[in-house]
Design a protein around this nucleic acid. Structure first.
Length: 883
DNA sequence: CAAATACGCGCG
DNA sequence: AAAGCGCGCGTATTTG
């Protein structure tokens, strides 16, 4: 389409005084005479500078692509920058850049005024700040800011009339440079901004009763209960830990605009309510939470606190967090983020805490306003979110699974796992001694200075490879500054000691260097992980063999041999150190509740696949229940007269793979095995692939090879990658890559359905960037193609396995939660853990079996997944239940 | 000095 | 250019 370009040269800019003095080289530009939207960038880059047009470089390419998702054509937008000339090194943060911003400002403002668009979209922090909008871009993005002209300047207004609307969002180069996960948020922001051209902007009305009287509260609550209104609920409490948390204020909203604050305890030591009034308020609140359908943001936590304070919540109808997760699990789910997409309250989260260090010390008006906003936004977002849920995702997954999981998760969190304090104490001191012993051993054997820190990657890199830390020169310089004559720097500070230690450790340590090109980590450092140690070990053993087989060995060879043995020994001890110190630091201390149990947290929205996540050490002080090493499971011991019962799905993911890919061979292998007349499916694979059986001398290694191959494929591994992994784990294996490729060809020809499923999944994820699992759960893939292909191959398997467990867990919960002879305590992806009174084991075991082995419909197959039940005194010593 | 990033590793 | 998936947490180190 041919259209004329309308260029805008900044007449008001003070170019002669500007260090860039490009003579306003890159003009503002639009394809129509009266553009309604301004896209405001930062500064021209190389391509822009050369062509004299804004957004014609790589960032512009991303921008054009994003604008395609909106209702406005790219040419109709006025494109311009905060500064019109290219700063040195493309860096607007440079001195020249800062100065240019000042000199360009009058021109920029005049340009914005002359263009007279309805909406300005500042891209990135600099553009946003240029409009007078404060705060970090990740927080203010997506909010609508009404701006007004006063004295030739543009500034945000809280209320009243406005001249233009601004919707800040990310700069395209931010997305381009790796923040691809933010792309859909970014596009959403642009859509939202452009819609303001035709949609009437409705500023948020806030009918908040922040300081109601007792009778106003009771009246309002009674009315809500009588009408059974749907309410948005948000609480502020003194702690996130349920048994410690005191309620400060509860905000209740009954529309996107109306809310009331219900303060519970006094702030600033004032007596809040007369006891008689408090009683009435509490009764009314209890009633409301009993009869009204409620909407929460993360009901899992708020309802736990409410329940602990005597306000049980009967009807959680919606949870905005779970809703957002069900719609698009890869998006960030903070309430601010959600509201920027679905609500109309501008970003308000900065208000929280403020100068006060604790919620309760906040100014009451600020706290209550914040709390009321948290409540109303839930109802603002709900309907548009439900629409998106239906359009883009699965209402069933949200209602039946996500919401359904709230009670079982709360049950597991409330029940927790009983822990033996005496075992814990002994375990801790044992592991501590082990760490100290191996640490001492390494320092002695390798004559390392005391300052050599085995936990420091930099020190280890020096020792193994002789690679100095990248900042080593700088450190030496800093040290010199400390000791320089006349220096006023104190040499007894922590920073100084650290500096000195690092330098000493390196100076006094002789590297072991054995030249094997170390693998690189993501940021380009030399790897020092287990895998790399394995590689080193293989290489040095080869070299030792080589030397051993030499006809003539010189003294040089003998020296080399000694060095190699030394390195071998170091790797052995270092591995022990890594292993022991990991256990010591992570698994020898637990936050134990007043009931002597560890209340591990669970999150329903924590993963992209629908698995539960566990742990919230930072906020709740309790870690992850799902990665506790076996040795530490001994710490969790049943109360007297009770037993641990663990139910595990057997080969869940592989079974799911069989059904999802409809792989006849695998399905038959499972069917035979379950009927009691067949080998384990992995054994069937091994037999098919290698034409051998258990009697063959290589059986064991071939069996493992087959297993690892399937496992690697299941996660989208490349053939080369799987091959290398296999060779590292079993260096004795004689297998060339070509032979391995042949195995792969053979497997695929033996499993045509699997092969077809694999190819179809890859092409679907590439084409649509969306997959829907057998239960309707969706995932939108954001990322590079090769990355999302691997994730895509895994998603239909891992997510279906997760949902099998989710449904089963919900069913199990409903069967056991009322019983006083058993407690649902935890789950680890494909297993559940209960504490059962000994005399009830024979009752409970079949209940667990029935719930977990319930039938599912997977692509028309009526299927059930078999479990193993184990029972024991603690979590480690569980054995197959035969009773 | 707190927050953010990098690396490595426990579990499934 | 190639990278096996999904998590949370500890230590070291850099960043603001």
């Amino acid at each position: 389409m041919a259209y004329e370009n309308y260029r805008y040269k900044r007449k008001a800019a003070q170019c002669s005084a500007c260090p860039l003095d490009g003579g306003c080289k890159v003009w503002g530009l639009s394809g129509i005479q009266k553009p309604q939207v301004v896209l405001l960038g930062e500064a021209p880059g190389e391509v822009e500078d050369a062509q004299g047009e804004p957004f014609v470089g790589p960032a512009g390419k991303w921008l054009r692509k994003a604008v395609k998702y909106t209702d406005l054509p790219y040419y109709s937008l006025h494109k311009t920058n905060v500064i019109s000339c290219r700063p040195p090194g493309n860096n607007i943060e440079s001195t020249e850049g800062w100065e240019a911003k000042e000199h360009c400002r009058p021109g920029l403002l005049q340009e914005l005024k002359d263009v007279g668009a309805k909406v300005i979209v500042p891209l990135g922090a600099h553009a946003t700040h240029a409009l007078g909008i404060e705060g970090s871009i990740s927080k203010v993005r997506g909010s609508i800011y009404p701006l007004k002209w006063t004295d030739g300047k543009l500034h945000p207004v809280e209320e009243g009339s406005y001249d233009v609307l601004a919707v800040p969002t990310f700069h395209p180069s931010f997305i381009m440079r790796g923040q691809i996960k933010q792309e859909s948020t970014w596009i959403n922001d642009l859509i939202k901004a452009f819609e303001l051209v035709t949609k009437k902007y409705k500023p948020p009305r806030e009918n908040f009763k922040l300081f109601p009287t007792a009778s106003e509260i009771v009246e309002t609550l009674n009315w809500l209960a009588k009408e059974k209104k749907r309410i948005g609920v948000d609480i502020e409490a003194t702690s996130l830990i349920a048994h410690r948390a005191e309620l400060i204020v509860t905000g209740i909203a009954w529309s996107g605009e109306d809310a009331i604050s219900i303060p519970h305890i006094s702030q600033y030591g004032r007596q809040l309510w007369k006891p008689s009034d408090e009683k009435k308020i509490n009764a009314a609140l209890r009633k409301v939470l009993k009869v009204c359908p409620t909407v929460f943001q993360n009901a899992l936590y708020d309802t736990r606190v409410l329940e602990a304070r005597g306000f049980p919540v009967r009807n959680v109808e919606h949870d905005i967090l779970l809703l957002d997760h069900a719609i698009n699990p890869e998006l960030p789910h903070g309430l601010g983020q959600i509201v920027s997409r679905y609500g109309n309250t501008p970003f308000w989260k900065d208000a929280v805490v403020g100068n006060a260090s604790r919620m309760i010390d906040m100014d009451p008006r600020t706290l209550r306003l914040y709390n009321a906003r948290d409540a109303v936004v839930l109802l603002q977002c709900l309907d548009p979110m439900l629409k998106d849920l239906k359009k883009f995702a699965s209402p069933t997954v949200y209602h039946d699974i996500s919401i359904g999981l709230i009670p079982p998760c709360q049950e597991m969190m409330n029940n927790g796992l009983p822990i033996s304090k005496s075992r814990l104490q002994k375990f801790r001191s044992d592991v501590q001694a082990q760490v100290e012993a191996v640490d001492k051993q390494i320092h002695e054997e390798f004559e390392l200075p005391a300052t050599f820190n085995l936990s420091s990657g930099a020190h280890i890199r020096w020792l193994l490879y002789g690679i100095e830390p990248p900042n080593f020169k700088k450190k030496k310089q800093q040290l010199a500054e400390y000791t320089a004559p006349g220096s006023n720097k104190k040499t007894n500070t922590k920073a100084y000691r650290k500096l000195l230690g690092d330098i000493e450790a390196i100076r006094q340590t002789q590297p072991l260097i054995y030249v094997v090109k170390p693998a690189k980590t993501e940021s380009g450092q030399s790897a020092i992980d287990k895998q790399q140690m394995m590689r080193l070990t293989v290489a040095l053993n080869n070299r030792l063999n080589e030397i051993e087989n030499l006809k003539r060995r010189t003294k040089k060879h003998e020296d080399e041999k000694r060095r190699l043995y030394k390195l071998q020994r170091f790797i052995e001890l270092f591995h022990q150190y890594q292993d022991r110190s990991k256990v010591l630091s992570t698994y020898t201390s637990y936050e134990i509740g007043p009931d002597g149990r560890v209340h591990f947290p669970y999150k329903i929205h924590g993963t992209y696949t629908g698995r539960l996540a566990s742990g919230d050490k930072k906020k709740l002080g309790v870690g992850n229940a799902q990665n506790i090493p076996y040795e530490a499971r001994k710490l969790f011991k049943a109360q007297k007269g009770w037993k641990f019962l663990q139910a595990d799905y057997s080969n869940l993911e592989l079974r799911v793979l069989a059904y999802v890919s409809e792989d006849d061979v695998l399905l038959k292998a499972f069917a035979d095995y379950d009927a009691g007349h067949g080998d384990k499916p992995h054994a069937v694979n091994a037999k098919n692939l290698f034409n051998i059986d258990e009697s063959h001398p290589d059986w064991k290694s071939r069996y493992n090879l087959a297993k690892r191959y399937i496992f690697g494929r299941n996660y989208g591994g490349s053939l080369r990658g799987i091959y290398e992994k296999i060779m590292q784990e079993d260096p004795t294996l004689t297998l060339t890559f070509n032979q391995f490729k042949e195995i792969d060809r053979r497997y695929r020809s033996l499993h045509p359905q699997y092969d077809k499923w694999y190819n179809e999944t890859v092409s679907t994820v590439k084409k649509t960037r969306k997959l829907t699992n057998a239960f309707g759960r969706v995932r939108y893939f954001q990322g590079q193609e090769n990355e999302i292909v691997r994730e895509g191959l895994n998603f239909p398997i891992q997510s279906v396995a997760a949902d099998v467990m989710n449904y089963a867990l919900i069913e199990l919960y409903h069967k056991v939660y009322k019983r006083d002879d058993c407690l649902l305590m935890g789950m680890v992806h494909d297993s559940v853990l209960l504490e059962v009174r000994e005399d009830a084991l024979s009752d409970i075991a079949p209940i667990v079996r029935t719930a977990l082995e319930r039938t599912f419909d997977i692509f028309g197959h009526k299927v059930s997944f078999p479990i193993d039940i184990e029972v024991g005194d603690d979590w480690y010593n569980v054995e197959e239940w035969t009773g």
